[in-house]
Amino acid sequence: MSKEAEEKIRNKQLIIAMKGHPGTGKSTLAHALASALKFPLIDKDDIRDSTFPLHQHQQPAAGLNDLSYEAIWRVATTQLRLGLSVIIDSPLSRRAHLDRLLDLTATVGARLVIVECRPSDEAMWRERLEGREKSWHKPASWGELQELIKAYDGCSEYDVGNVPRMVVDTTAPNIGVEELVSSVVQFIASAWCPIPPPM
């Protein structure tokens, strides 16, 4: 990873928003980015896991999902008001979620970039999804994932406007997490932290 690009990113206040369906490698990449850049990581799964007692009392799943996002926005707002950059690990599956982030960036003066994980190797994606630790609120099988995507009814494929977005193939052959992190850092640096031309 380029030290120059890394330093340029650290000198800007950023929201790095992950995007993608379950099992696409978002969390692995988000954790690696947070570790490399030393940015706070806000993981929707951490928040959603904490709503399990409400789930046991038959609270509607949609309501708990909305509650999880509301918690993300509040935690992110606090971190950004402290002058920190943040990485938000969530599916970002609806345009309304992006709109909240855009409102947040306008409020605090931060810059937003989207890192979308889209595996090209469906078999590897399926293997990852079905091989990961089971959770009460995540699809556990390929069939469950397909039902979830179908329920989105295309709403997860929305126009992000002029927000810089990098689409990452997390199943590309011979490319490890370190290389992916490096390419994301270079992308962010070029999108929001352009290197001035030589004198």
Results as ranks from 00 to 15, higher is better:
S93C: 11
Q146A: 10
R94N: 08
L101V: 01
I72T: 07
A123L: 04
Q146D: 05
G154S: 09
R128E: 06
R132K: 06
Q146T: 13
E147R: 15
W73E: 09
I88T: 02
P60T: 09
K150S: 15
P91L: 11
H137V: 03
G131M: 06
C117A: 14
A62K: 13
W125E: 05
R81L: 10
P139F: 05
L82M: 10
H97R: 11
S135A: 12
S141V: 07
T77C: 07
P139A: 04
N65I: 05
S135P: 01
G109F: 08
P91S: 11
D89T: 07
K138F: 05
W142Q: 07
L145R: 02
I114Y: 02
R94V: 15
E133Y: 00
R111N: 10
H137G: 05
W73M: 13
R100P: 01
S90C: 14
W136T: 12
L84S: 09
V75H: 01
L82D: 11
A96G: 04
E130H: 02
A123W: 03
G143K: 12
L145A: 04
R132P: 06
V86L: 07
I149L: 15
I88D: 06
L67G: 13
A123S: 10
D103H: 07
A140F: 00
Y69P: 06
Y152A: 02
E127V: 00
D103F: 00
A106Q: 15
N65A: 14
L104H: 05
A151E: 12
C117I: 05
K138P: 00
Y152I: 01
R100C: 05
T77Y: 14
D89V: 14
W142S: 10
R128I: 04
R94E: 15
L80I: 06
V115S: 05
S135V: 02
W142C: 03
P60E: 12
I149A: 03
W73D: 10
S141A: 02
W142G: 13
G154L: 09
Y152V: 03
M124Q: 14
A123F: 02
E130R: 04
E127I: 00
L82F: 03
L102K: 14
W136D: 14
A110L: 01
I114V: 15
Q146I: 11
E147H: 11
P60K: 06
L80H: 05
R94K: 12
G63R: 06
R111E: 14
E133S: 08
T77W: 13
R132S: 01
L102W: 01
R118V: 12
L98A: 04
K150F: 08
D89N: 08
E157Y: 09
E133M: 07
A110C: 08
A76V: 04
H97L: 12
S93Q: 15
A62S: 14
Y158C: 10
G109W: 05
H137D: 05
A151S: 11
H97D: 12
L145N: 03
W125I: 04
R81E: 14
A96Q: 09
V86S: 10
T107A: 15
L84K: 08
I114K: 02
L64R: 15
V115Q: 07
A62I: 14
Y152D: 09
E130G: 00
A61P: 04
R94D: 13
E144L: 09
I87R: 07
E116R: 15
I72Y: 04
L82Q: 13
A140C: 03
A61V: 14
V108M: 01
